Simulated assay, not measured.
Amino acid sequence: MEQDHTIPEPSAAGTACASYLEELCEKDPQAFICHFYNVYFAHTAGGRMIGKKVVEKILNKKELEFYKWESTMCQLL
Rank of each mutant, 00 (worst) to 15 (best):
Met1Ile: 07
Met1Gln: 04
Gln3Glu: 09
Asp4Met: 10
His5Lys: 14
Thr6Ala: 10
Thr6Ile: 12
Thr6Asn: 06
Ile7Phe: 13
Pro8His: 05
Pro10Val: 06
Pro10Leu: 11
Ser11Glu: 08
Ser11Cys: 09
Gly14Pro: 06
Gly14Glu: 15
Thr15Gly: 05
Ala16Lys: 09
Ala16Val: 05
Cys17Leu: 13
Cys17Lys: 05
Leu21Pro: 00
Glu23Tyr: 12
Leu24Tyr: 01
Leu24Thr: 01
Cys25Ser: 08
Cys25Asp: 00
Cys25Arg: 08
Cys25Phe: 04
Lys27Asp: 02
Gln30Tyr: 07
Gln30Thr: 09
Gln30Phe: 10
Gln30Ile: 14
Phe32Lys: 02
Phe32Ile: 01
Phe32His: 02
Ile33Lys: 04
Ile33Asp: 02
Ile33Leu: 09
Cys34Asp: 14
Cys34Val: 12
Cys34Phe: 13
His35Tyr: 15
Phe36Tyr: 13
Tyr37Trp: 12
Val39Phe: 14
Tyr40Cys: 08
Phe41Ser: 01
Phe41Ala: 01
Phe41Arg: 03
Thr44Asp: 02
Ala45Asn: 07
Gly46Trp: 10
Gly47Trp: 07
Arg48Ile: 05
Ile50Gln: 11
Ile50Phe: 15
Gly51Arg: 12
Lys52Gln: 12
Lys53Val: 15
Lys53Gly: 04
Lys53Glu: 14
Lys53Phe: 14
Val54His: 05
Val55Cys: 04
Val55Tyr: 01
Glu56Ala: 10
Leu59Lys: 11
Leu59Tyr: 09
Leu59Gly: 00
Asn60Arg: 07
Lys61Gln: 01
Lys62Phe: 05
Glu65Thr: 12
Phe66Glu: 11
Phe66Leu: 15
Tyr67Asn: 09
Tyr67Lys: 11
Lys68Pro: 00
Trp69Ser: 02
Trp69Leu: 11
Glu70Met: 05
Met73Cys: 01
Met73His: 02
Cys74Ala: 07
Gln75Thr: 08
Leu76Phe: 08
Leu77Phe: 13
